[in-house]
Simulated assay, not measured.
Amino acid sequence: MLNSQQLIQEAYPMPINADHFQDFVFTCEDYTPVTDASPMFAIDCEMCQTAVNQSELTRVSVVNERLETLYDTLVKPRNRIVNYLTSLGFSDDLMFHPYVIDTSVIYNLNGDRIMKPGLKRLSQMFLGKMIQTGHEGHDSIEDATSCMELVKLKLQHGIGMCF
């Protein structure tokens, strides 16, 4: 899991600057410590660009450790959509949550915080599967499933695993 310093370095939203993140919500009111028995969920969100030149949510998908889809829904943005951003990846699929495992961090192949490998490349390299190949854009269930598979692989083989 990312510690507080890593969350800040990776530009995760933190409640320390509430004005900047006023539209974000906490995932729950109280957080219990993580244990080996704690459940894991992979969350992927798809975004669009709206008429007010803002990135807004359009889809949310949640997958559990058994790779079962627990939640998948479309979200109507507040403003008119001008670009569905189907060919781009976003790292702002975020909400306030203190327990985060970020595949781009745990699989940072070159150690560069800015030029980290994307999910498509990581899935091909470590899982041997091609994702995000359709012309209709990303599938948030496919992306969440791949993230969970990558995290489980890392946990199974250890943080220093190399292939």
Rank of each mutant, 00 (worst) to 15 (best):
D36V: 09
E142D: 05
E142W: 06
G128H: 06
V63K: 02
V82C: 11
S4R: 15
N79T: 01
L85S: 06
I114V: 13
D19I: 06
L127D: 00
C28W: 12
P39D: 12
C147K: 04
I16R: 08
E29S: 12
T69F: 06
M130Q: 11
T73K: 06
P39G: 06
F90H: 09
V82E: 08
E149Y: 07
F126K: 01
F41A: 00
G160L: 14
M161I: 09
G160D: 09
E149H: 03
T27D: 10
L70N: 05
T27F: 12
M125N: 10
M40R: 01
T35K: 07
G128V: 00
A42E: 04
I101A: 10
K129H: 09
N17V: 07
T103M: 01
I16S: 13
L67T: 10
A42H: 10
N108E: 03
S140R: 04
Y99C: 10
H157I: 02
F41Y: 12
Q54F: 12
C48L: 08
R59F: 08
P13R: 05
M40P: 04
R80M: 12
A11P: 07
K120E: 03
N3Y: 09
G118C: 04
Y99S: 09
T27K: 09
T50E: 04
S4W: 15
L119H: 04
L74Q: 07
H157Q: 14
Y71P: 04
P15M: 07
K120H: 13
T69W: 03
F24C: 07
Q124H: 15
L119E: 04
K129C: 11
D143N: 06
I8T: 08
V60P: 10
S123N: 00
F163E: 13
D72I: 09
A11W: 12
D143P: 00
P33Q: 06
T145Y: 08
G160K: 13
M1I: 14
D139S: 15
L88Q: 12
G158F: 05
Y31N: 06
D139F: 08
